[in-house]
Design a protein around this nucleic acid. Sequence first.
RNA 1: GGAGAGGUGGCCGAGCUGGCUGAAGGCGCACGCCUGCUAAGCGUGUAAGGGGCUAAAACCCCUUCGAGGGUUCGAAUCCCUCCCUCUCCGCCA
Length: 425
Amino acid sequence: MLDLKFMQRQPDVIRDALNARAVDLDFDHFLALDAKRKALVQQVEDLRHERNHASTQVAELTRKGQVASSLISRLSAVSERIKELDVQRKEIEQEMDALRLSIPNIPHPDVPIGATDEDNLEVKTWGTPPAFDFSPRAHWDLGPQLGGLDFERAAKITGSRFALAWGWAARLERALISFMLDIQTTENGYLEVLPPFIVNEQSMQGTGQLPKFKDDLFKLEDWPYYLIPTAEVPVTNIHRDEILSEDELPLGYTAFTPCFRSEAGSYGKDAKGLIRQHQFNKVELVRFAHPDTSYEQLELLLGHAEVVLQRLGLPYRVVTLCTGDLGFSAAKTYDIEVWLPGQSAYREISSCSNFEDFQARRANIRFQPAKGKRKEFVHTLNGSGLAVGRTLVAIIENFQQPDGSIRLPDALIPYMGGQTSISKE
RNA sequence: GGAGAGGUGGCCGAGCUGGCUGAAGGCGCACGCCUGCUAAGCGUGUAAGGGGCUAAAACCCCUUCGAGGGUUCGAAUCCCUCCCUCUCCGCCA
């Protein structure tokens, strides 16, 4: 959510931002509503002022034992008028609120203008894609063949876009989760949290999933609750309606959670394998930062996600999302894309964003500056550290051997009970 | 599922026989004074949102005591509905 004053004063900035994002939204209508609102507010406030003033006169007269019936009957009419105008004002404000909740964040000046992911800007690459003297296979072949992944039974249990992992794959998934959490908690200063996987509507609105992206969510029947699409939601909302102190910033939380997404509108996309599932595991990093330093925090956060891939020896690149690809709430986002030999492509494995005060304003997360200054909204950031299922995919595909086995990265061996490779049998 | 208690400012906590309560008191915080030894004492100040005026302030005004509605000239205070928290019983782990 954007600041109302800012929208009034810098309408062109909003128009440019909407344009850059190719969002079709009638911002001038919003401004017209605001003008109407102001006019109404003035009328109502004048009447209220009159009523307040006269009411104290009534009180005085009554105290003196006098009757103020003429005054009272006049005020009765004033109150009626106030009620009428208030109804109008409320209608306009409701419409404005709804519009405001669907206006996306303003992209940071660094963000390249563009329409699709092809316009994203590569900022760095790390490692080199492995060279194979055989044609590398995709994880959806190797996984089932090695007895770790079972898509058919998952379809029986639930349906498409679900996976059943067992044996080595189940353990590898668990190993990766521990490995990632350990790095973030012991090396990068994050506090581990285990939040609810189901949240209410307010939380979804706080981080920006609602009201616009309802169709992407799983909602519980007969409950105003939703399955989380990412740990960003419960973890950012930890501090909803709270006032943090300046010296505790920045705060860093890491959480492992399953994530649930309806993937509406992605029919046919990544239909095979683990890439796009209705349920997947993720280790998330969330930071609450001082507005002055949030972009430094974004670089830091990116590094915290990158180090996981580096330890695993997985080649990747980092891109800055262009305006057309940028998420609704984000001001700037880096995607980390890991190399997948099975597809000969880089695929997103982490998304690190600075939301500035966009989420904080929605979720009302503020901090109290030390010097007795007024409270300000914090800046929120988050990033995957990493998507666990996709990491498993990357390991399977990058470290596959000519004989169909998979070599495990050294960093993971302690987490796998000393096991160094996975082979059939 | 049954019974009860409660939701007030950054926090705790009064008020709840309707007007003088944006809200006592305390804590915390800020500034100042005093003092000087790892501290205490004293004083002053300390909500948010919106509207007007303004270059910006100052200033004036309106709203806000869980949410929404009602009664009333006027509600934190009375009535109704809903949400949430806590305690006890039952139930399940």
